[in-house]
Simulated assay, not measured.
Amino acid sequence: MTTTPAREAAPAVDDATFEELVAPLRREIFAHCYRMTGSVQDAEDLVQETYLRAWRAMHTFEHRSSLRTWLYRIATNTCLTHLESRKRRPLPTGLGQPAADPAREPQPDRDRTWLEPLPDALVWGTEPVDPAAETVTRDNVRLAFVTALQHLTAQQRAVLLLREVLQCSAAETAEALGLTVAGVNSTLQRARAQVARLEEDGADGASPDLDDPRTRERLAAYVTAFESYDVPGIVKLLADDVVWEMPPYPEWYEGPAQIGTLIGTWCPAQGPGDMRLVSAGTANGLPAYGLYMRSDDGVHRAFQLHQVELGPDGVTHVIAYFDTALFAAFGLPETWPQG
Rank of each mutant, 00 (worst) to 15 (best):
A193R: 14
R89N: 06
E227Y: 01
L188V: 02
L310Q: 08
G205T: 05
E62K: 14
A182I: 15
G290K: 13
T93Q: 03
A302Q: 02
S186M: 11
P250Y: 05
L21D: 04
L161T: 09
A54D: 01
D204E: 07
G311T: 07
L286Y: 09
T126H: 02
V141Y: 10
G94M: 07
P5W: 02
E44C: 00
V231H: 11
V315N: 10
G281E: 01
D241H: 12
F226A: 06
A57V: 10
V159Q: 00
Y253V: 06
D274R: 10
G202N: 15
S228P: 09
H82I: 01
A182S: 15
M293W: 08
A302W: 02
L162P: 03
E49M: 04
Q97K: 10
L237I: 08
V184R: 03
C267M: 13
A203C: 04
T137C: 00
G298Q: 00
R68Y: 04
T60P: 05
E251Y: 08
F327L: 13
V231E: 14
L161Y: 00
L21K: 00
E19W: 00
R110F: 02
L291F: 00
R301H: 05
P232T: 10
T224R: 15
T4N: 13
V146P: 01
T324H: 11
A288C: 06
V318W: 08
V278N: 00
Y321M: 07
E334W: 04
T324G: 10
V13W: 00
R35Q: 15
A57I: 02
T316F: 04
F327H: 14
M293T: 10
G314L: 11
L122N: 04
V308N: 11
G331Y: 07
L188C: 09
G264R: 03
V123M: 03
L332I: 09
A176Y: 00
T261L: 12
T4P: 03
H300L: 05
R142G: 15
A329R: 14
L161H: 05
P337R: 09
V141A: 06
I234W: 09
V136Y: 10
Q338P: 13
A132T: 09
R35Y: 09
R294M: 01
L305V: 04
A75F: 06
S66I: 12
T81L: 08
A269V: 08
A158M: 01
C33S: 14
L332T: 15
P131V: 15
T60D: 15
R218M: 06
P108W: 02
